[in-house]
């Protein structure tokens, strides 16, 4: 998921770099106001925690293992902006120490995984937690947020890649990205869910909705943001079907200025322009992408419900123990 150097166009790298830097400075300012001099210790140790947690390998298939990404987990445990700063710290160390992710793509990586992954993920988590009361809501919200945040990040990644190449290729890249990441997303949702459930069983006070970190946005603002994020994620899976109506997309593109106006036809008509979308297998990829989205969403909610069943019982045990 880490974008390496030279894959992005210089303009895209510069734009995402500027957005990323602005977002990071805003996040740090917000945290300083919230935690004061405690910010450094909390963020520093929590970034180290995500780094160490990534060392734990989960067996996926013989020979293949995956690990936690941690954007939504840190947002759920510490709040959205803290989650973003934790992701930024992890990305900076990965870039400078392990050469994982390019220097010129640092901004794009932070936008995808920090701002969209962590803050966007929290925007999905917060309304779900409110809608479903109790620890169940926390768990289901966290798992759904983890799943959608991976998808949203991959959608942003696809957009950046497409903006670096020819625009018409966007849907093909998006299909592939969404397919690969719908699998990664289920893994992330499962790991996030297991960890959140563990914390809910051991120290529910750390995840208490009442004592949770307060954000500036009001309840409705957050619900709106969450709805927007979910709509975007669904759009990622439905977007490949939008190519049925390419004129609509081109119309929007021309008006927003990211597609050249039709009158400026290329001097050399490229024979590949429309061919790419009609490659054999694309039709299947498109259907498979939408299916992956549907099945994945249902699977994540099913898993979350199953895992949440143990929670209320555990809580009652705890209270009776406390009473006794």
């Amino acid at each position: 998921m880490h974008i390496p150097d030279m894959v992005l166009d210089p303009k895209v790298a510069a734009a995402t770099g500027a957005i990323g830097a602005a977002g990071l400075i805003y996040a740090v300012r917000k945290l300083e106001r919230q935690h004061g001099e405690r910010t450094t210790v909390l963020m520093g140790t929590m970034s180290a925690f995500v780094f160490a947690a990534q060392m734990v390998n989960f067996p996926v298939w013989p020979g293949v293992s995956g690990h936690l990404l941690g954007g939504v987990l840190s947002a759920v445990l510490l709040g959205p902006w803290a989650g973003a700063v934790v992701v930024a710290a992890v990305l900076i160390v990965q870039c400078f120490l392990f050469n994982d992710g390019g220097l010129t793509a640092l901004g794009a990586n932070f936008v995808n995984m920090g701002l969209i992954g962590s803050v966007g993920g929290y925007a999905i988590y917060a309304p779900l937690r409110r809608a479903i009361s109790g620890p169940k809501g926390t768990l289901i919200g966290a798992m759904a947020a983890a799943w959608f945040s991976v998808l949203l990040a991959s959608g942003a990644f696809a957009m950046e890649l497409a903006a670096s190449g020819r625009r018409g290729d966007f849907l093909r890249i998006l299909s592939w990205m969404a397919m690969v990441h719908s699998l990664i997303g289920i893994g992330e949702a499962l790991i996030t869910g297991i960890v959140v459930r563990y914390v809910l069983l051991r120290r529910p006070d750390l995840l208490d909705p009442e004592a949770g970190p307060t954000t500036g946005a009001g309840r409705w603002g957050r619900t709106m943001l969450g709805g927007l994020a979910v709509a975007l994620a669904i759009a990622i899976f439905l977007a490949p079907f939008a190519s049925e109506f390419p004129d609509g997309l081109e119309f929007v593109g021309e008006h927003l200025g990211f597609l050249p106006a039709k009158t400026v036809a290329p001097a050399l008509p490229s024979p590949m322009a429309d061919y790419e979308l009609k490659l054999p297998g694309f039709e299947q990829a498109r259907v498979a992408t939408a299916m992956a989205g549907l099945v994945g969403t249902l699977a994540v909610f099913g898993l979350a419900l199953g895992m949440a069943r143990v929670l209320p019982r555990a809580k009652r045990e705890r209270t009776t123990l406390d009473a006794a």
Binding site: G44, F49, A52
Partner: peptide, 27 residues
């Protein structure tokens, strides 16, 4: 670079090794 961010990274670098050792012990 903002001081808070650098201090956070300094902390992270310090505790990264401590926590990876902790993970090893737990594993």
């Amino acid at each position: 670079m903002p001081a808070v961010l650098v201090a956070t990274l300094q902390f992270m670098e310090r505790y990264r090794h401590v926590l990876i050792d902790e993970v090893d012990r737990m594993a």
